[in-house]
């Protein structure tokens, strides 16, 4: 089958195809609704999560991980919900289940281990930046960072050949993957990821940072969050923490750096805090959930 035989590769089409193949676990929507229901209780929320034992275990391990640095042992989802917060628990649940959604992608196209390591590192650094800035609901930054390159998987899963073609072009030319995507497809992995998450009814505060992580200035509502993911992505590439969509270090968007207002000397502290969390979080989220 030649390249031209594929259905036309448009953004909408890819999203449509993918959302039917890969869907979010059922619990996510129920969880969301319960959390926003004024009459629901923590017990209601805990009940939904604990239906998935694998998720429950991952969440508890996460809640007790250095990322949270929590004071006491979190031994129940109820306690996690009270301590971490229900919205935050929902975001973590999304992060803890999304890795299991994408499967069956050829190893030569995408090294899943290296890819998710990059994504988790990006999420943790984005969250650390948010903590440093005293942002509220920092878990959404973790999720946004974790999902920032999800478009890359989507393309690799749905269009093996296009993906391979792009990877080879990048290897040969040494140009930015992003530019090659845009030339070849007229859209890029960030836009694609954002579109999929939107389709999944993920909150805009997570969708936008993903969709605009290469050009945060274009985000409509969550420019700051987009900027944090943008910076976290660049740091991960520069530090070679895993392997994302891009090969080199993407250019830094100056206005975003200005907007964040994080002093350069603080970066070392933020990185140091993040580094220790990356390996453990990766181990928690990738392991023990193979069914």
């Amino acid at each position: 089958m030649s390249l031209s035989d594929y259905p036309p590769t448009t953004l909408d089409r890819l999203v449509e195809e993918t959302s039917t193949v890969y869907s979010l676990p059922l619990f996510y929507e129920r969880l969301n609704e319960t959390i926003n229901h004024p009459r629901s209780s923590i017990d209601d929320i805990a009940k939904i999560i604990t239906e998935d034992q694998g998720l429950t275990a991952r969440l508890l391990r996460l809640a007790n991980s250095p990322m949270f640095g929590c004071y006491a042992k979190v031994d129940s989802i109820t306690k996690a919900a009270t301590i971490i917060g229900t919205q935050q628990l929902r975001d973590l649940a999304l992060a803890a289940s999304v890795m299991g959604v994408f499967k069956g992608i050829p190893e030569d196209l995408l090294n899943m281990t290296s890819f998710w390591r990059h994504c988790i590192a990006c999420g943790i650094i984005a969250r650390s930046l948010a903590v440093y800035r005293r942002e509220s609901n920092v878990e959404r930054l973790f999720v946004a960072g974790m999902l920032h390159d999800v478009g890359h998987i989507v393309l690799a899963a749905a269009r093996h050949e296009v993906s391979r073609e792009l990877l080879e072009a990048q290897r040969d030319s040494g140009r930015f993957y992003l530019e090659l995507e845009r030339e070849r497809l007229a859209f890029d992995h960030a836009e694609l990821g954002g579109a999929l998450l939107k389709k999944w009814k993920i909150p805009v505060s997570i969708v936008e940072p993903v969709a605009y992580h290469h050009n945060p200035g274009s985000a409509e509502q969550f420019r700051l969050e987009a900027a944090m993911v943008h910076l976290a992505d660049i740091i991960c590439q520069a530090m070679e923490l895993g392997q994302g969509a891009e090969c080199g270090v993407p250019p830094l968007d100056e206005p975003s750096w200005e907007r964040l207002g994080v002093p350069a000397h603080m970066m070392a502290t933020v990185l140091k805090q993040s580094e220790s969390q990356i390996a453990e979080t990766f181990a928690i989220l990738s392991g023990g959930d193979d069914d």
Binding site: T82, I83, Q88
Partner: peptide, 18 residues
């Protein structure tokens, strides 16, 4: 005493405890 207060200080959102 149990550390929840310190935890809440570092969270920019409400911490709820029974």
């Amino acid at each position: 005493m149990d550390g929840t207060f310190a935890w809440a200080l570092n969270r920019n959102q409400a911490v709820l405890v029974p």
